[in-house]
Amino acid sequence: MSKAETILEGLGGFDNIVEIEPCITRLRVQVNDAALVDDAKLKSAGIFGLMKSGTAVQVVVGPEADNIADDIEDLR
């Protein structure tokens, strides 16, 4: 599974994602249901870190954030 696929699954899939905004080193994600976010799955993608505050999730992926966001969009 690609990094983008793993992250998408860890976020609960497209149905759970309101918006993904890449910002240099992180994906800023708004989700519908924070309970559907699978931390272990996200961490298995080799991410640097994870910050969660309610339905706002930040997946720190390093400098390739923009590419990963594009890869995730391509899976749609």
Binding site: T25, R26, F48, M51, V60
Partner: peptide, 9 residues
């Protein structure tokens, strides 16, 4: 900001 403060990147 926790990402910067914790030197995650």
């Amino acid at each position: 900001d926790p990402v910067f403060a914790q030197a995650i990147v």
